[in-house]
Design a protein around this nucleic acid. Structure first.
Length: 448
RNA sequence: GGCCCUAUCGUCUAGUGGUUAGGACACAAGGUUUUCAUCCUUGAAGCCGGAGUUCGAUUCUCCGUAGGGUCACCA
């Protein structure tokens, strides 16, 4: 049985890189009928927090990346007795020794740390993604594996836990390649079987360095807050460093499990491209039903919207499809609303100039006047149930006089802007009465 | 700096000892459209460099170069 693991260090929010590593471990395990176990690597008491652990776990669950621990998850902070047992064992068999020396953390103080007895040899391990990797462990020295018998350090706990949890495949970031020989040395000293390794390429910032806070948003939570859906996140992350070998780009989690192959994992780092990420999110947004999109947008939690922007109104509900086809992420909708893009829904436009109402050879917009009046006439008996039925009511007349001749001034009259959704959509959103009122206002404007 | 990893359009990538080196995002142009957005079409854009092997290298080897990772009593 294949067992992979996701062992985050609970020292912050769920990092995008951690999420991707978890995803790959999940995909590999599920694809092969195996399991993935979760382990909280909280041996650093100074930096680890319970809040962070909870956030990481809930973030992973939100994404749909689940683990298969029997019962509680494993916390290294609760396993000191186990590590002590193995420390005693490794010391007893000569693989490590207690060294009395000056503390590095508190200079001046003498402490007894446990150091691995380095056999100083050339060691080769196989990586599923990169092939054989060779190191000379001499340069590592006798690494410290525990501060004392009750305080084991990372390399030691990882080896012991992976062994005890039955981990068969260690799939982690490329930044762990150099840790691997140390851990193998510990395994050998303990007489533990070596797991199979696979080191994933790193997610890079646009400057090609390792993604970090200074590059902006790095937590899954921050992307979630901006309105990236879990489907888009999963999909984009999977394709950063992996490909299906086909032209398919859109995948559900289940499809990813089905198509996943380690052999298709890239060797080199992948730059995180927010533009492509946005494209994925937009694809998922446009696939939502009206109800799903309304739930997704949920502007009731958005701050700073203009007071007249009534999200409980019917007109707002009618506006939703227009927003849905335009945005990539929820935050864009909020920003656009704040910028007044959709003010026409609630505010009768009055600020526009007569000049804007004219179309081509119509110096003073006088030609627009009869057209608007005729449009108002037609609209009075139009079917307002959809933008299309409104369009149908005006179409014949528009073709007669020229579409631009009618629709351009009409759109300005309804939106007050040079750029806006089409007049049928606006008329549908604001309703017959308000539509006629706005046309009348425009006519008055032309008359002076 | 030592050690390790990596190298196809700007980005994510497919691919082959002989291909018009393919797709996607982004970008540009044109079309549809009253405008914006959408949509459709088209275009520009790439095999890091040098040797070697070979009839022939983007592909194989070596050397450079570049980028990245890592060098804790953190994980």
């Amino acid at each position: 049985m294949i067992i992979t693991r996701i062992p985050p260090s609970p020292t912050g929010k769920l990092h995008i890189g951690t999420a991707r590593t978890a995803l790959f471990n999940y995909l590999f395990a599920k694809k092969n009928g195996g399991k993935m176990v979760f382990r909280s690597e909280d041996t650093d008491k100074a930096r680890s927090t319970k809040e962070s652990e909870a956030e990481i776990m809930s973030g992973l669950q939100w994404l749909g990346i689940t683990w298969d621990n029997e019962g509680e998850i494993v916390r290294q902070s609760e396993r000191a007795p186990i590590y002590r047992e193995y420390l005693e064992k490794i010391i007893a068999n000569g693989g490590a020794y207690v060294s009395r020396e000056e503390s590095k953390n508190t200079p001046g103080e003498m402490v007894e740390v446990v150091r691995l007895k380095n056999p100083n040899k050339v060691l080769t391990f196989n990586d599923l993604i990169r092939g054989d990797i060779t190191f000379d462990t001499t340069e590592l020295g006798d690494i410290v594996i525990a501060r004392n018998l009750d305080d084991a350090l990372y390399h030691f706990t990882v080896v012991v836990d992976d062994y005890l949890m039955g981990v068969t495949h260690v799939i982690r970031g490329e930044d762990h390649i150099s840790n691997t020989p140390r851990q193998i040395l510990i395994q050998e000293a303990l007489g533990i079987e070596r797991p199979i390794y696979a080191h994933l390429p790193l997610i890079l910032a646009p400057d090609r360095s390792k993604m970090s806070k200074r590059h902006g948003a790095v937590s899954i939570e921050s992307y979630r807050e901006l309105g990236y859906t879990k489907d888009a996140i999963l999909n984009y992350l999977a394709l950063l460093g992996w490909n299906p070998g086909t032209d398919q780009e859109l995948f559900t989690l289940a499809e990813l499990v089905e198509k996943f192959e380690v052999t298709q994992i890239q060797k080199s780092g992948a730059v995180f491209d927010i533009k492509k990420f946005n494209w994925f999110n937009k694809e998922y947004l446009r696939r939502m039903s009206a109800e799903e999109f309304m739930t997704y947008l949920d502007l009731s939690t958005a701050e700073g919207l203009p007071k007249y922007f009534d999200i409980t109104s019917d007109s707002f509900t009618r506006l939703l499809p227009t927003i849905q086809e335009r945005i990539s992420i929820r935050q864009e909708a909020i920003d656009e609303i704040k910028a007044g893009e959709y003010d026409f829904v609630f505010v009768s436009p009055t600020e526009y100039t007569t000049d804007m109402l004219k179309w081509k050879n119509d110096p003073d917009a006088s030609a627009a006047l009869p057209r608007l009046e005729k449009a108002a006439e037609l609209l009075k008996t139009a079917d307002f149930s959809t933008p299309d039925t409104i369009k149908a009511a005006l179409w014949g007349y528009a073709e007669e006089v020229g579409k631009g001749e009618l629709f351009s001034p009409l759109r300005i009259a309804l939106s007050g802007k040079a750029q806006s959704p089409d007049p049928f959509t606006i008329a549908y959103i604001v309703g017959l009465e308000e539509t006629l009122r706005r046309i009348a206002t425009a006519c008055d404007k032309i008359k002076g």
